[in-house]
Computed example of a mutant assay.
Amino acid sequence: MTPQMPHTPAWKTFTYVSFLCAAAMLGAGIAFMPADIWIKGYMAMAAVFTIGTAFTLAKTLRDEHEASRLINKIEDAATERVLREAVPGRI
């Protein structure tokens, strides 16, 4: 398994800028929407909740992926140990 390369500063900047642009456009769209204030408030709450759950989902999926990589490493090490013991001369 290859180690994961760290993200470049340019990529990190791009992700922050794109997130801020998307959030600003969403906020402007809600603010300028021709609707009553309570509808705008509902839309804003839904947007904030959606953004929060997107972060939670991304973190959960990443954690699950990292855990499966660790489990695979453990299983691979156990398989190698069994093969080393069962097949003499195997490195």
Score class of each variant (00 low, 15 high):
Tyr42Lys: 09
Ala23Asn: 02
Ile39Ala: 11
Ala24Ser: 13
Trp11Gly: 09
Arg62Leu: 03
Lys59Asn: 10
Arg84Phe: 08
Phe49Cys: 02
Asn72Met: 11
Ala58Ile: 01
Phe49Lys: 02
Ala47Lys: 01
Tyr42Asp: 13
Val17Thr: 14
Phe49Ile: 09
Cys21Val: 15
Met43Ala: 09
Leu57Glu: 03
Met33Lys: 05
Thr15Gln: 15
Gly41Met: 01
Thr60Pro: 02
Tyr16Ala: 14
Ala54Asp: 03
Ala24Pro: 03
Ala31His: 01
Leu70Arg: 14
Ala31Ile: 01
Thr15Cys: 15
Ala35Tyr: 02
Phe32Ala: 01
Val17Asp: 08
Gly27Glu: 04
Ile74Ser: 13
Thr56Ala: 15
Tyr16Lys: 14
Asp63Ile: 02
Leu83Glu: 05
Leu20Asn: 06
Ala31Gly: 06
Ala28Val: 12
Met43Tyr: 05
Tyr16Trp: 13
Tyr16Leu: 11
Gly52Glu: 05
Glu80Ala: 13
Arg84Ala: 12
Thr60Ile: 05
Ala78Cys: 10
Thr60Cys: 06
Leu70Tyr: 06
Glu80Tyr: 08
Phe49Gly: 15
Trp38Pro: 04
Leu70Cys: 07
Leu20Ala: 14
Ala35Trp: 03
Ala28Gln: 09
Ala54Met: 13
Ala35Val: 00
Met45Gly: 11
Lys73Glu: 06
Lys40Ile: 01
Glu75Val: 02
Thr50Asn: 08
Phe32Gly: 02
Arg81Glu: 06
Met33Gln: 01
Ala46Gln: 07
His65Trp: 08
His65Ser: 09
Ser18Thr: 12
Phe19Thr: 15
His65Thr: 11
Ser18Ala: 14
Leu70Asn: 10
Ala67Arg: 07
Asp36Gln: 12
Ala47Asp: 03
Leu57Ile: 11
Thr56Pro: 02
Ala10Pro: 03
Ala28Trp: 14
Ser68Arg: 15
Phe14Pro: 05
Asp36Gly: 09
Leu20His: 01
Ala31Val: 07
Ala47Asn: 02
Cys21Pro: 00
Leu26Ile: 01
Lys40Thr: 02
Val82Cys: 07
Ser68Cys: 00
Leu57Tyr: 10
Ala10Arg: 06
Glu85His: 07
Leu61Met: 06
Ile71Val: 08
Val82Thr: 11
Leu57Asp: 12
Lys12Ile: 15
Thr50Ser: 15
Thr56Lys: 10
Ala67Leu: 03
Val17Trp: 03
Arg84Gln: 11
Gly27Ser: 01
Asp36Trp: 06
Ala22Phe: 10
Glu85Lys: 13
Lys73Thr: 11
Thr13Glu: 15
Gly52Trp: 03
Arg62Trp: 04
Trp38Lys: 12
Phe49Asp: 07
Ala46Trp: 04
Thr56Phe: 11
Asn72Arg: 13
Leu61Phe: 08
Asn72Lys: 12
His65Lys: 09
Met25Thr: 08
Ala77Ile: 06
Ile71Cys: 04
Gly27His: 03
Ile74Glu: 14
Trp38Tyr: 11
Thr13Asn: 09
Arg69Ile: 09
Glu66Asn: 11
Ala23Met: 07
Leu70Pro: 00
Val82Glu: 10
Ala77Gly: 03
Tyr16Asn: 09
Ile71Trp: 04
Glu64Met: 13
Asp76Val: 06
Thr15Asp: 14
His65Leu: 13
Ala67Asn: 00
Trp11Val: 14
Leu57Ala: 10
Ile51Arg: 04
